[in-house]
């Protein structure tokens, strides 16, 4: 499935590890969809399923994010640099409700609320892993 250019959402993205891994990520497992890998361009979406939504509750931050299940494809673009990566949803996350109001900014413009988690492979295509958080636009 190809990545599209229709605007879907915007917000912050963080990164996480999944699948076979080293260090504290050992035993992280394949995520909610069972096939998540840190070294692949994968992501976690807060509304991958109803059970997922019940955990992440982005609505508590005013983010009524639409349902996109396992295998959905999204194009993620850094708000300022324009760097992009095409990802496949393979997990549920982040727990948006725990970070309501948190903002990531660049060039004086901010995106609020964690709405996406990326694997290290995907996140590093957009920016520096040590930043921990980036403002992004999401397309499908």
């Amino acid at each position: 499935m190809a990545c599209g250019s229709t605007s879907l959402w915007a917000g912050e993205t963080s990164w996480f590890c999944c699948g076979n891994a080293w260090g504290p990520c050992t035993g992280a497992g394949g995520g909610a969809c069972g096939n998540c890998q840190s070294s692949a361009n994968h992501g976690a979406w807060p509304n991958a399923s109803q059970a997922c939504w019940d955990i992440t509750r982005p609505d508590l931050c005013g983010e009524n994010i639409p349902r996109r299940g396992c295998g959905s494809v999204m194009n993620v673009k850094h708000q300022c640099s324009g760097a992009t990566v095409c990802i496949t949803i393979t997990d549920c996350g982040p727990r948006t409700k725990e970070w309501c109001g948190e903002a990531s900014c660049c060039n004086g413009q901010c995106r609020t609320n964690r709405v996406l988690d990326l694997t290290p492979a995907a996140y590093s295509a957009l920016g520096d892993l040590s930043s921990g958080m980036l403002p992004v636009y999401i397309y499908e």
């Binding site: 361009n41 324009g82 095409c86």
Partner: peptide
């Protein structure tokens, strides 16, 4: 920073 979007998620 100036990468263009890939058209297929399998291609990085």
């Amino acid at each position: 920073a100036a990468q263009q979007p890939s058209l297929d998620p399998a291609i990085s």
